[in-house]
């Protein structure tokens, strides 16, 4: 008898060392709860994939007709079978690039100012201000661009094209810098002006991401740099900027994604043309989103399908940009902590 008891004790000890299998009994309320949240997850999944599938399905009709010329054709006349995204994609990308080119230096400066230079007491005020600016509706920026910028910035466009017109994309066709009475309308409604407006719109978004990662740079490394006799700028250059590199790239890409998809502000400013127009200071450009807003009302069934195809191209572009952004942020040192 005693031996068996000892044996079972040994057995028990062995069993206790191993991980026990835990079987949690799920009771009815929990089952219902899980069912509900799973349903909502599936519902979201369905809606979201439906958008992609539906876009692709409706776009298919137009893409079948256009074939590969959809990517190379510049005109947009779906009902005569002559349509393609070459011109509008170039326009969209150029506007977004001008916007990013202006927004990124400004966003870096504001982010550095808020996280490194601003007085402590004012820091949270500036953070709120930038976040608020990111929430200002795009139509407000569009109004400002249409009524204020359009009339005030043509001089800058004229100046740049006069002195740097030898660079191909900065030249302006039909402008005569030597003639002081030449009309300034060739400088309005340009890629450049649309780009400035979109830049102001995306700069707060880029800035708030950059500020977030800059402020996460470890104090130990900051003080280490100071202890080695670094100046403040030296510290920023060797600690803060390398630490925040992932966030800077990610934030820029995120801003690029928003800039590509912007509709109304661009629509209000540009005058649409359907040829590849690489001269950014000259009047006339186009973008995918503003094309959809411009043409959806008068489109026939096939025309809508063509617009869907353009929308799909835009969506794929922003999707790729966003995907790159999130993978860059997730892989960077600062992104690993911020999640």
């Amino acid at each position: 008898m005693t031996t068996t008891v000892v044996e079972t004790d040994v057995d028990n000890a062995l069993v206790a060392d191993q991980a026990r299998e835990i079987i949690a009994k799920v009771d009815r309320p929990d089952l219902i709860f899980r069912g509900i949240i799973r349903t909502s997850g599936i519902a979201v999944l369905t809606v979201m994939s439906l958008i992609g599938v539906f876009l692709a399905y409706r776009a298919g009709e137009a893409l079948n007709v256009a074939g590969w010329s959809f990517l190379t054709e510049q005109a947009w006349e779906p009902d005569s079978g002559k349509f393609g995204v070459a011109a509008i994609i170039v326009g969209t990308v150029l506007i977004a690039l001008v916007a990013i080119g202006i927004a990124v230096p400004l966003a870096i400066a504001v982010a550095l100012y808020i996280s490194e230079y601003a007085p402590r007491r004012l820091q949270s005020t500036f953070v709120s201000l930038v976040d608020l600016m990111a929430a200002v509706p795009s139509i407000v920026y569009g109004l400002w661009g249409l009524f204020f910028l359009q009339s005030n910035v043509t001089g800058v466009g004229r100046w740049i094209s006069t002195y740097f017109g030898w660079i191909p994309f900065l030249s302006v066709k039909g402008a005569d810098p030597t003639d002081p009475l030449s009309p300034s309308t060739v400088y309005t409604s340009s890629t450049f002006i649309a780009g400035i407006v979109v830049a102001l719109m995306v700069a707060p978004i880029i800035c708030s991401i950059m500020r977030e990662v800059f402020s996460q740079a470890p104090s130990g490394e900051r003080e280490g740099a100071y202890a080695l006799g670094s100046t403040k700028w030296g510290m920023i250059r060797t600690v803060v900027l390398p630490f925040g590199k992932g966030g800077m790239i990610g934030g820029t890409m995120l801003g690029l994604g928003r800039a590509l998809g912007e509709t109304i502000a661009v629509y209000l400013i540009i005058s649409p043309v359907f040829i590849i127009q690489p001269r950014i200071l000259e009047s006339g450009t186009s973008s995918v989103a503003s094309l959809i807003a411009l043409r959806y009302g008068e489109a026939t069934n096939f025309g809508t399908s063509a617009l869907m195809a353009a929308g799909l191209a835009l969506f794929l572009m922003t999707l790729v940009v966003n995907f790159i952004a999130s993978s860059v942020v997730a892989r960077s040192r600062s992104g690993a902590e911020s999640g």
Binding site: I42, M48, I51, R58, N322
Partner: peptide
């Protein structure tokens, strides 16, 4: 609830934040 389904939903939801607003409008319109 962790698992393959929730990972898929998360990926799709994150991808959809890239959806340009005009395309969302176009979807409902169509």
């Amino acid at each position: 609830i962790s698992g393959r389904l929730s990972r898929l939903v998360r990926t799709i939801a994150e991808a959809m934040t890239a959806l340009p607003s005009i395309v969302a409008g176009l979807f409902i319109y169509a």
